Simulated assay, not measured.
Amino acid sequence: MKINKFKVHEKGLNRFFGPLEARIMDLLWEKEELSIKSVQTHLETDKAVSFNTVMTVMNRLADKGILNKRHVGRSFLYSPMLSREDFLNTQSKELTYELMDEFGSSVVVNHMLDALQNVDEGLVAKLEQKIKDWKKDR
């Protein structure tokens, strides 16, 4: 599942989704599986959202392969195809590969190393070990 629009200046899930999509995904990651009506009911605690709007958004997320949709009785239940962690891992990996394709490996890796100035030494040690293992496997 590839998200086609990454919004650099947004925060959190809004980098990958529109605001309503992000709220729906947050809710489904928390509750695991819900009907459209249940999602609408949970969302209405913030502000009114029509059933048809929620249905359209959830069906589009299912069509994109982000949600699983299964028929139960007279309705459908929706659940995320990936956990939040797996989704974010997949998207960050995809973004890294795209950046490397567009700007070159050395530029991207150098910028990532520059960003390490603000991380703890434990992460740096893990990265050093990963590089050692990577070199060994080559």
Rank of each mutant, 00 (worst) to 15 (best):
M1K: 02
N118W: 02
S79W: 04
K69N: 00
K135H: 15
V39T: 09
H42T: 09
H71N: 15
L13C: 00
M25F: 06
S92Q: 07
D63E: 13
K126N: 13
D133P: 03
F17V: 03
D114V: 08
Q40T: 04
L27V: 15
E121D: 07
L113Y: 03
L95I: 11
S83G: 11
K126P: 08
A48M: 13
D86P: 05
G12T: 03
K69L: 04
Q117E: 09
S79F: 02
K47A: 10
V39G: 02
N59R: 04
S75N: 06
E128M: 11
K31Y: 05
D114Y: 07
I36P: 00
K126A: 14
E94R: 10
Y97C: 14
R138Q: 15
V57G: 01
K7C: 07
G122K: 08
R138M: 10
N110K: 11
E102V: 10
F103D: 06
V124R: 06
K135P: 04
E32I: 08
V72F: 15
H9A: 14
D26I: 12
M25I: 04
K5V: 10
E94T: 02
L43Y: 06
V49W: 11
N118A: 05
T56L: 12
K135M: 14
F51K: 10
V124W: 02
I3V: 10
G73I: 01
E32C: 14
F51N: 03
V119N: 02
E44D: 07
S75G: 06
S75P: 07
E33S: 13
N118D: 01
V109L: 02
L13G: 00
L43F: 12
A125C: 09
S38G: 10
F51T: 12
A48F: 08
V108H: 09
F16D: 03
R70N: 01
D133N: 10
K11R: 03
